[in-house]
Design a protein around this nucleic acid. Sequence first.
DNA 1: CTGAAAGCGCTTACAG
DNA 2: CTGAAAGCGCTTACAG
Lengths: 328, 328
Amino acid sequence: MEKRSISAKDVAKLANVSQSTVSRVFTTGASVSEKTRKKVLEIAEELNYRPNALARGLIKQKTNMVGLAMKDIQNPFYHEVLGMFTQKLRAKGYSVLFVYTENEEIQQDEINHFLEYNVEGIIVTDALLSSKVVTKLHDNNIPVTLFNRYHKDLECNSVSCDNINAAKEIAKYVYEKGYRDIVFITGKTNTSTSRDRQKGFMDFFNQKGIQITILEGDYTYDKSYYLTKGMIESGHQPEVIFGANDITAIGALDALKEKNISIPDETIIIGFDNIKMSSWPSYMLSTWAQPMEKMVDETINLLLTDPKTINKKVLKLNGYFIHRNTTK
Amino acid sequence: MEKRSISAKDVAKLANVSQSTVSRVFTTGASVSEKTRKKVLEIAEELNYRPNALARGLIKQKTNMVGLAMKDIQNPFYHEVLGMFTQKLRAKGYSVLFVYTENEEIQQDEINHFLEYNVEGIIVTDALLSSKVVTKLHDNNIPVTLFNRYHKDLECNSVSCDNINAAKEIAKYVYEKGYRDIVFITGKTNTSTSRDRQKGFMDFFNQKGIQITILEGDYTYDKSYYLTKGMIESGHQPEVIFGANDITAIGALDALKEKNISIPDETIIIGFDNIKMSSWPSYMLSTWAQPMEKMVDETINLLLTDPKTINKKVLKLNGYFIHRNTTK
DNA sequence: CTGAAAGCGCTTACAG
DNA sequence: CTGAAAGCGCTTACAG
């Protein structure tokens, strides 16, 4: 029960070998005779010894830690993403230092812990970094990958869904079905996800000379619900509502239901994300599935296998349309 | 752009002081003349120096890291909890090493990273530990606090909502309103939260000689939705449905809505957790609010200020009933 | 295959 | 107030 935990030296003493040898036993690829390895492992087991990752990180200049910063949002999509990141990183032997932030732009002091602990890379989901922070990170030689965000002035990697193209595909579907009274409810307008989805959707219809209605939401259920309700009450009952994410679409859906508008017969609704909730039996929302697993894999890849790339890589992955009960 | 990051030695050289002095500048309480402090700070700023937390952790035997293990569940309650934990811990100068698990009982290998990095304590939310793991943790002198779980045989601290009492209060409300046809939909029956809520609820009615209906759910929306739908279709339309958590209650709520049962007039519904979703305008679910912030505070307190307590402390905090639109 | 030694970047008695 | 030195627990050339 004393304070200090047991070290390689303790094991060495009992095993009658040097501390170096104990270390070698726990270093894959180091040459140790089968006999000593067995003995050391035995004693280690007995003493419940595990190499100290801090000391190892210090000497190897490699900590096996990754920093993950995530914005405090209501969107369950990112919770699923978080789960996937931690599991995949662990499988690769990495630990995750986690920070939750409320800022759209991650602040310096939120990154400081990451720097102090010498993380090998930083993943930022659903938020941005100031270019000052990015510069600092570069100076410290710590790679960053933005997940589902990008910014043209930011010198870092980014992985996201090809939001523009996805929205275009959705627009195409809507157009070909013959709908002309179309509403898009935005997310937070300062996010690249919302802007791109809006752009892809609008551009398509602009080219066709069709005017669509834009409602400014903020990625929350409440906002979308009230926006939709207000619109119906003001006499506008569109044929199509496309929400910038699933939560937005679900808010609209519930408002429509309350107004006894039949879905998909009178109005069709399309979301974006394919969160688990969108397949709940009472919603069965048609939506665009982001290729989450692929996005996570690519992010980790970019961060870890190619850490020294200075020239930023911007990856945009496709997804696919999932038709459920809110489209025909 | 070289590999090594800059160290106290580098700062010392430029500031014409010893490395010890640089260290002292970054140690609160150490005595340094105002003049040297200023100079060192200046150079440090210029070089972008920050003390290496790994080295500091190694020498001080104090890492300022806490391990947080969380079960991969659908319940948004725990996402809110996660956010609160990371923010409060950061405010106290702690970093969070995060692990997501799919196991009801956290496994040894999921804890290993925590051990290797010498975390100062471990928080386990919504899951259990095997007694073997707990023993190992004790041997390594690492305190553990269970959040919203407890187990009588487990020698560790735990903080949870007083689920038994909360359920009793709800039962009392239901009873006094005169309802007699009552359904309880459980959560996962191997969780202490579900068991306690069921126990508190049933015990009250048993004492009154009233039989209630138990439906075995699993804390998911889908299960609860289909359970409720099935019940209605089999001809049983109860006056009260109490769900073991909000998601469960919401699943029941949607099923009832679909069957055109008027809420709260024909059937009232009560949930548990007070997740953000429960206050969405189309739900406005009446529910029991867990005192989340207090629970988080107490957990951190127990873990950090009193780490050497061997005798486990089991804290049960009250919450309060929130009446919204699904009760009268 | 193995040990002694240097060193990762810190903190902290110990002198002065 | 400040510097030299020891030491936290490791890894890894360097010899043998």
